[in-house]
Simulated assay, not measured.
Amino acid sequence: MRSIGEVAAWLGVTASALRFWDERGLVSPARKSGARYYDEDDLHRLAMVKMLRGTGMLSLDEIDVLLRRPQHGDWRTTVQTRLSEIRAQQEKLAAAEEFLGHFLACPREDPVKDCPELRAHTARELKGTFDK
């Protein structure tokens, strides 16, 4: 059994974060004289919470679904929804990388004004917009 201070230091989080995760029901440490003590299963769950939070892609509510309700199967829907959102973000990031890379590589001094490739792209975006 590990104390909250030991676990906080080991995970690199604050004791208040561990207390909050406990209050949210993500972990249920043993109590002795009001102090929290964590066993190996608790440590695994806490490491999982930290890992999932560290990605910046899962909310505590989504993590709660993964940790507390696997028997209902709703965790698969949660994961699939989040994966779909991540893939959409990846597509946006790839497009942003392509545009910004073009800006850097463009030989024009003012790419926004003078680049024929960027003009062609905006023309495709605007096609039909004002034809109504």
Rank of each mutant, 00 (worst) to 15 (best):
G128T: 08
R24E: 12
T81Y: 04
D131T: 15
R69G: 09
S3Q: 04
T77C: 01
L83R: 11
V27K: 05
F103Q: 00
L58I: 04
W21L: 06
K50R: 15
T55L: 03
A35N: 13
R76N: 04
G54L: 00
M57R: 11
T122Y: 12
V79N: 07
K132G: 15
C106D: 02
E117F: 03
H121S: 10
I86R: 03
Y38G: 07
E23A: 15
H72Q: 15
D131F: 07
V112I: 12
D42E: 08
S28M: 12
A8E: 03
Q90R: 02
Q80S: 12
S3G: 13
K32H: 14
G25N: 04
K32I: 13
A105W: 00
R2I: 08
R124W: 02
P116N: 08
Y37F: 14
M51I: 05
L126M: 13
L26M: 06
P29R: 08
V65S: 08
R108W: 03
R31L: 12
A15M: 12
T129N: 07
D131H: 11
A95E: 06
D42V: 09
Q80T: 14
L100R: 04
S33P: 04
Q71D: 15
P107Y: 02
D41Q: 12
T55I: 06
I63M: 10
L93E: 00
E125V: 14
P111N: 02
C115L: 01
A95T: 03
C115N: 03
T55R: 01
Q90F: 02
T14M: 07
A30N: 08
L100S: 01
M57C: 11
A120D: 09
L46E: 05
A47M: 10
E91W: 01
L93T: 00
L11V: 06
E98L: 11
L118H: 02
R36Q: 08
A30K: 13
E91F: 01
T122V: 15
S84I: 00
F99W: 06
D22Q: 15
R87Q: 14
D110M: 01
Y38I: 08
D41G: 11
D131I: 12
V13Q: 08
L83C: 09
G12Q: 06
Q89T: 02
V65H: 06
W10E: 13
E91C: 07
Q71R: 12
T129A: 14
D110H: 11
T77A: 15
A120W: 00
V79Q: 07
